[in-house]
Write a protein that binds this DNA or RNA. Structure first.
Length: 691
RNA sequence: GCACCCGUAGCUCAGUUGGAUAGAGCGUCUGACUUCGAAUCAGAAGGCCGAAAGUUCGAGUCUUUCCGGGUGCACCA
């Protein structure tokens, strides 16, 4: 073994070294330069830890350049020796039609794997400012009602992606956009003013009189659906009453105007809903750095700045005739126009007001530090542990205390459902046109499919379905119709169910402990449930599945870690130290040969496969970032938990008679529980002491 | 009409930049608690990866055309 090996702990690093080696050898031996070298994880442990199918590619390239026909196996044989001399590699085999299968130095790898999770990687001080900040906007629920399960998918997806980015060493700013001046808020204000006939004081009084089971956002949830009916004079199938719809327009106008009783009422309603929504999200471990509001985007005239830039660059033009007469539009080439659908996107209406897309372009420019304007900010809330959430303000006098710098990110990730991919495309294209140096890569639409309700779930909610709906695979949720599963209701139910299980298993625990454990399980179940599906898969929400604690679930993963921890509760410090010493490989004793023996054969493969899986976390995090897909990490966590459960059943770790073997089992279990805990924490799932 | 997404086991879904014998969970059936915790584990059954052609050493994965389902394509947000 070479000296350099002592340094190497990371699989990713080892893999890179091997790739480089292959690249160098291909050039040296065959004069072929390979731009991309694909590596693969062999299907079974006995086939090695990493495989290069590179000989097939080389055989083809050799034939192309020299006309000489070479067998892939022979080529693989030539590369074999070079790979074998790489640090960390025990041996290399040529298998199948020409696969190069690399076997790592098992005992050496195990000995060098850190026994404490290295905390440094996620510490902010090691993150360089030069690298640029990642901006993630998620949640962004209309502040006019309680959050439902669809909103939670957005928030959990966004929050988990934030955690993944941070685990990968990125600096991240989390934003939750508040559309406090839109029609949805206006609708609820219509309800308060014209159905309930309430003033701001009445609404405040109502708020403080509401029972904890039905807080303000729940009240608004119901009121919002009543407004929908109100517009149709009480009959959902009737046409909308234009006189009543006019009330909305008036309120919308008053809100935009500001400085009037209606605007104050709207602001109170929106703010109370934001508070409720933030409370809901806090239950799931989700927080935000800053809450940018639409009211400030309006009042601080963000659009005017963007508008000027667009005019300057000739990206937008005034239409003087035709259907879009009087509008300012942005041409959108990739979309050919038809009679019905215009190719041009209207950004300023003929009445002079700006569209949502226009505002969004301005906002996106701000996120990237390209607007040349900033918000004012004030502290919105401070959590018990000191974490602060800020909200935008249009009053410079609010800028009293020291605050972090917001905005100006290098890359922006917008977590928005896939139904908005068209407008997101326009925003991306528009921003890239204004700032070509940033390009389209700076704006990422982290899209995901909606959460719908299974017909069974609708039935459980007591929703009557039409014949036509019943035949559908799923039913779309609708805040307008009040059709949906409220987030807090679901969390409550999960906590109740979890508490029953905890009570049954740990009656001796304190009430607080039981509640905390039930909470952790509920969060684990919900977050995992929403993360196990890939982003572009529609979730047809099903109560039975979402409420399950068995099988491929968060609690399954947590349970695996809890069991691993219980082993270490029973082991004393000395036993751990001894284990570490026995496998360290430092001493010149006979341990080495015995260690090698433990990793031999079928049993050795079985133990080793768990080590390899556990060590892969870093790589999985990288893949999850590259694909912007948290589901990869979720699946990995489950597989690691599953592998540990298998290991746990196969070995009696504490009772193991052979001390070297016992030391190996202890170290493997320790590595696994640490990596599993880290993976789960990155998913926002905690591991309770007992469960 | 145009654009995007999906189609893999009875059901719900994974399947890394194309790689070796296509995997989980649920459900069904059969077993395993005197052990570091059974929210667990083992075993069985279950597949023309929507269809057809093409690209290549190699296709669930890439291309094209169909078929079936979903979602967009506002002077709404």
């Amino acid at each position: 073994m070479t000296e350099g090996i002592k340094r190497i702990v990371s699989l990713v690093e080892l893999q890179e070294n091997l790739r480089e080696r292959v690249r160098a050898e291909a050039l040296e031996l065959f004069g072929i330069s390979l731009e991309q070298i694909s590596a693969e994880i062999p299907p079974r442990t006995e086939l090695g830890d990493l495989a290069f199918p590179v000989a097939f590619e080389l055989a083809k390239r050799i034939k192309q350049t020299t006309g000489e026909k070479r067998a892939p196996r022979a080529i693989a044989e030539q590369l074999k020796t070079a790979l074998e001399s790489t640090a960390g590699v025990a041996r290399v085999e040529v298998a199948g039609a020409g696969y190069l299968n690399v076997f790592y130095d098992r005992a050496g790898f195990l000995a060098r794997f850190p026994s404490e999770i290295s905390e440094q990687t996620s510490q902010p001080e090691t993150l360089s400012d030069a690298k640029g900040k990642r901006m993630v906007e998620h949640t962004s629920i209309n502040p006019n009602k309680a959050a439902h399960i669809g909103h939670v998918r957005n928030a959990v997806l966004g929050d988990t992606f934030v955690r993944i980015l941070r685990a990968a060493g990125e600096r991240v700013e989390v934003q939750n956009y508040i559309d406090n001046t839109g029609v949805q808020v206006a609708d609820v204000v219509v309800g308060f003013m014209h159905i309930e006939h309430m003033t701001l004081e009445d609404v405040k009084a109502l708020n403080s009189s509401l029972p904890p089971q039905k807080p303000f956002d729940y009240f608004c949830w119901d009121l919002y659906t009543r407004v929908g009916l109100f517009y149709r004079d009480g009959d959902p199938n009737r046409e909308e009453n234009q006189e009543k719809k006019q009330l909305r327009a008036e309120i919308l106008h008053a809100i935009e105007e500001g400085d009037n009783a209606t605007a104050l009422l709207a602001d109170y309603v929106a703010t109370r809903n934001v508070e409720c929504i933030l409370d809901t999200m806090e239950r799931l471990g989700i927080r935000y750095d800053v809450l940018p509001r639409e009211s400030e985007i309006l009042h601080l005239h963000f659009w005017d700045h963007a508008f000027a830039q667009m005019k300057e660059r000739g990206l937008i033009h005034y239409v003087s005739e035709g259907k879009n007469r009087g509008c300012w539009v942005m041409p959108f080439e990739s979309h050919t126009g038809t009679d019905e659908h215009e190719a041009d996107k209207i950004l300023v209406r003929s009445n002079g007001t700006v569209t949502y897309t226009g505002k969004d372009i301005a906002y996106q420019l701000w996120k990237l530090g390209l607007l040349g304007l900033d918000f004012n900010y004030k502290l919105f809330r401070e959590y018990a542990d000191g974490y602060q959430t800020w909200i935008t303000s249009s009053r410079p006098q609010d800028e009293a205390i020291e605050r972090p710098h917001f905005g100006g990110g290098q890359t922006v990730y917008n977590v928005i459902d896939s139904r908005q991919s068209y407008p997101q495309e326009i925003v991306k294209k528009g921003v890239a046109a204004i700032a070509p140096e940033k390009g389209e890569e700076a704006s990422v639409h982290l899209s995901y499919e909606m959460v719908a309700l299974s017909p069974a779930a609708c039935e459980e909610l007591g929703i009557r379905l039409s014949e036509e709906d019943r035949a559908r695979p799923f039913i779309e949720m609708s805040g307008r119709k009040g059709l949906g599963v409220k987030a807090d209701d679901l969390i409550n139910r999960l906590e109740t169910d979890a508490l029953v299980e905890v009570e049954a298993r740990h009656p001796e625990s304190s009430e607080d402990e039981k509640l905390a454990t039930a909470h952790a399980i509920a969060v684990g179940a919900l977050r995992y449930f929403l993360l196990k599906f890939t982003r572009n898969s529609v979730i047809a929400f099903d109560f039975k599945e979402a409420l399950s604690f068995e099988g491929e679930t968060g609690p399954y993963c947590q349970y695996s870690a809890v069991r691993a921890n219980s082993i270490f509760r029973k082991l004393d410090e000395a036993a751990l130290k001894e284990a570490e010493h026995l496998i360290s490989g430092d001493e010149e004793s006979g341990n080495k040969s015995e260690l090698l023996k433990i990793f031999e054969g079928e049993s050795g493969d079985e133990i080793w496969s768990l080590v390899m899986l556990a060590a892969r976390l870093e790589e999985i995090i990288k893949q999850s970032v590259a694909a912007a897909e948290p589901a990869h990490l979720a699946k990995y966590s489950f597989n690691l938990a599953r592998a540990f459960n298998l290991f746990y059943h196969r070995h009696r770790i504490i009772a193991e008679g052979n001390r070297i073997r016992r030391a190996v089992l202890i170290k493997v279990a320790d590595i696994t529980r640490r990596q599993l805990t880290l993976a789960l924490n990155t998913l926002g799932i905690g591991v309770p002491e007992r469960m």
